[in-house]
């Protein structure tokens, strides 16, 4: 069961600092939405506000509305923990748990919530998730070794496996391939294609080709000027975005003329 997300007039703050201003968009269920834009324009910030990870930072808060399948995300009655169980996230930097083995890292979402499950069921989830993240073949013989003993790119794929192991309805990915080689990248892109049939996926990327390849819709973020808050410049279907965008700045950015 995938979910759609509606964002309207969203302002996002770090303390008094307005990082992103006036975001409006509709993220369709069972589709891939890509966020592109120059560094520091607030892509990660917007992404993190979609599963209430933003408020984890002291002083960070939002104004505006985010609704998931019609339900307001920032309603005072909404439990952020429940939100995050349904909306998973892969971070820009790989962050496996250092005290856990590869196996335990994949199962962390279940184990940390003390979900009871049989050994066979657990093995199953681990294998399926690791295969999904294209990591299974590399680690299947050392599942009990520490997750920190993997290379950076392997760690990132481990984090992806960990995120899909809990089968969230929406998956937010912040530059998941920035540390990966072309083979793993294409495996992740295949995975995104596969997941699309069941999940809603939002991905931040600096790679235009990747955005063009994997996404159905694309949002372009930009800064009006240095020190100004970031904003959503254009949000359109990906083919249109890359063929003839409405906005001149979008075209300039995509064709590599700036940013």
């Amino acid at each position: 069961m995938a979910k759609s997300i509606d964002v309207s007039d969203l302002d996002i703050y770090y303390g008094d600092f307005l990082a992103v201003e006036g975001v409006n968009m509709h993220i369709k269920a069972r589709s891939v939405t890509a966020f592109i834009g120059p560094s520091g324009c607030g892509k990660s910030t917007v992404l993190r506000s979609l599963n209430r990870m933003h408020e984890v930072i002291p002083g960070a808060h939002v104004q505006g509305k985010v609704t998931v399948d019609g339900q307001s995300l920032y309603d005072s009655a909404v439990d952020p923990v429940a939100v995050r169980r349904q909306i998973g996230m892969v971070f820009q930097r790989p962050n496996p748990f250092p005290t856990m083995s590869i196996y335990e890292n994949v199962l962390a979402g279940n184990r940390l919530n003390s979900k009871k499950m049989k050994k066979t069921e657990a093995d199953d989830i681990v294998e399926r998730s690791l295969k999904g993240a294209n990591l299974w073949n590399e680690v299947k013989d050392r599942l009990d070794k520490p997750g920190m003993g993997l290379s950076g790119g392997q760690q990132q794929r481990l984090c992806i496996a960990r995120a899909i192991a809990v089968e969230p309805q929406v998956l937010l990915m912040d530059e998941p391939c920035s540390a990966l080689d072309p083979i793993s990248t294409s495996a992740i892109e295949d995975l995104i294609h596969e997941l699309k049939s069941d999940y809603t996926i939002v991905i931040v990327t600096h790679n235009m080709q990747q955005a063009a390849r994997v996404s159905d819709e694309t949002g372009f973020f930009n800064l009006k000027a240095a020190g100004q808050p970031g904003h959503l410049v254009e949000f359109n279907a990906t083919p249109k975005m890359f063929a003839n965008p409405d906005n001149e700045a979008t075209e300039a950015y995509i064709s590599g003329r700036f940013g």
Partner: peptide, 12 residues
């Protein structure tokens, strides 16, 4: 990062 990783998995 570790705390965030845990929160993102829906861990209280």
């Amino acid at each position: 990062d570790l705390r965030e990783a845990s929160y993102a998995l829906g861990v209280p």
